[in-house]
Design a binder for these strands. Sequence first.
DNA 1: GAGTATAGCGTTATATTATAACATAATTAT
DNA 2: ATAATTATGTTATAATATAACGCTATACTC
Lengths: 133, 133
Amino acid sequence: MENKQKPLSKNQKIILEYIQKNKKPVKAYSILSNVQKKGINAPPQVYRALDKLIEIGKIHKVESQNSFVACKTSDCETPHATAFSICDSCDEVSEINDPKLFKYLLDFKDNSGIKFDGYNLEFFGTCKSCETS
Amino acid sequence: MENKQKPLSKNQKIILEYIQKNKKPVKAYSILSNVQKKGINAPPQVYRALDKLIEIGKIHKVESQNSFVACKTSDCETPHATAFSICDSCDEVSEINDPKLFKYLLDFKDNSGIKFDGYNLEFFGTCKSCETS
DNA sequence: GAGTATAGCGTTATATTATAACATAATTAT
DNA sequence: ATAATTATGTTATAATATAACGCTATACTC
């Protein structure tokens, strides 16, 4: 079982570090303005790094928010099978890492019989701290 | 069991009809350009109707595509619990209406114990017709 | 190690998606 | 009938994302 991890490029590293520093998902232009001091000047530089980081599973995109969050699963083996819970009132997002759910969904077949190679699932609700306030 | 369906407004009707005519999901600005002959001139008119139609469950948003599709389930009772399958190569989208999946997901609790009131699930794969070509 | 293929960089410009804000009109509820 | 709510039409602009181009660094292969 070899682990051929290509090293990240300079921009990829800068942007991944910034995303990892944040608990909450961050937006592309917010990333941009926060890494400008590191020499990243324009949107394409950010989006290119984001695309790559998503591809290799280091981050995920929260589609309903157009935001990006670091993968919490140490070694995200199936980068394109993601599940999140999202609080309707505070927008807090957490990644769900539930092997049963994971398996259930990857085994799921629709009625046309095709098997899927990935999914994105976003649950909505009210988080504990918002509920009590 | 009463069915209090408020009638749709003029713009809502125009836009819903346009979306229903299309098998595939449509984009907001494509809707706009196709309903301009009916007197809808500007983006806010479209987005306002879209928001309302989503709220009442007549249409759904395909988040990963920023596109909008009519609900196929005759009377979509839980408008905010949606599942789609999306073909990676032709972008064909179909709504999945599987009661077991539906129940499984609405019953799902994450490890913080909160129950969710909605979800959006998008499966990715290659559809039958793309696979054979 | 020279040559070539691939991936990444920096930049400008522009496309695409979505909302703010404001004045008015229509509809619904009391 | 009046008040409250919902929808409309409009202008302007915000927020998100990509095209295209020339160049540089890295990896691949013989």
